[in-house]
Design a protein around this nucleic acid. Structure first.
Length: 284
DNA sequence: ACTATTTCCTGGATGC
DNA sequence: TGCATCCAGGAAATAG
């Protein structure tokens, strides 16, 4: 399940492989729920555009596109909203989404929902069995609004985002409108390091402890990025390499196993429909 | 304005 | 062995 560190790893790999390349044609599959924008709009924005940069925002991969003097007039006449000269292709991988860069001759994976052919002769393919992933297009800047980037937000702002909320801290960490990029694994790991139980109401947490959480979130995310993310549920990066941060997990997926600090068995509870793991002794 | 719950989706694991 | 059932979870939609 790609969260911030996995998406960062994938985006860096794609930046290496396809930035500067030009999109020649686009094929989109017939599963409408995988498209957040209208398919015709996605195709119009991508075709003949140059990929100037690939980067991550929250859990999204952003392809910055530039159109080099190719008039979109014909498309405009058909009332397909003309993509601006500086559009963005936004990819959300959901649970099982993959972005593959491959030769056109490469075997077509089951559940391939989009194929983008590149001027370099390669293809960029979006594959997603569970179909929680989404493709969309936006104008430059539109996507910047939203939650704060956990690795860029300042401490005071982080504290202000959470203060006073009645919801469990785990729920707040997963709320992408507050902080974007933290998912189930890194929420659990951050809470363990901050000594906070996932069910703890945000409003009962002291400012000092929220500051500790801020440090924990950054620490966990930075360590995970350095290790290429966590490879569970078949996650691999743009080169098919597995990350190794799962070996550093202290609570996630360790229900019933001994806490690495105090040996107390790790508990598992369900919050917001997600499994949450914590040490009942180390976390309050 | 918030918060909680439901829904979408398939493959791998588990159960009988 | 084979089939049915459960479970994983991000975020949009819905309900309170």
């Amino acid at each position: 399940m790609p969260e911030l560190p996995e998406v960062e790893t994938i985006a860096r790999g794609l930046q290496q492989k396809v930035s500067g390349d030009v999109i020649e044609s686009v094929w989109l599959g017939s599963k409408p729920q995988t498209m957040k924008s209208r398919p015709a709009e996605i195709a119009a924005a991508l075709e003949h555009a140059r990929i100037t940069q690939v980067r991550r925002m929250g859990k999204h991969i952003v392809f910055d596109l530039e159109r080099n003097g190719v008039p979109a007039a014909a498309k405009t006449r058909r009332r397909i909203k003309a993509p601006g000269p500086r559009a963005q292709w936004i990819v959300h991988l959901g649970m099982t989404g993959r972005m593959l860069v491959c030769e056109p001759s490469a075997e077509l994976a089951k559940h391939t929902h989009a194929i983008v052919t590149l001027a370099s002769g390669r293809e960029l393919r979006f594959v997603d069995p569970r179909r929680f992933g989404r493709l969309s297009v936006a104008s430059q800047g539109d996507f910047e609004a939203g939650g704060s980037e956990p690795l860029e937000v300042e401490k005071d702002r982080f504290v202000a985002l959470f203060r006073g909320r009645k919801t469990p801290i785990k729920s707040a960490l997963l709320n992408q409108k507050l902080l974007r990029g933290v998912g189930n694994i890194y929420a659990d790991e951050s809470l363990f390091r901050a000594g906070l139980r996932p069910r703890r109401r945000v409003s009962t947490i002291t400012r000092a402890r929220l500051e500790k959480l801020y440090e924990s979130v950054q620490e966990v995310l930075k360590e995970a990025i350095a290790l290429g993310g966590s490879s569970i549920s078949n996650y691999v990066d743009a080169d098919g390499e597995e990350g190794v941060f799962q070996l550093q997990h202290r609570v996630y997926g360790r229900a019933g196993e001994a806490c690495l600090v105090c040996k107390t068995p790790i508990k598992r509870v369900v919050i917001v429909g997600r499994s949450s793991h914590y040490c009942p002794k180390c976390q309050k």
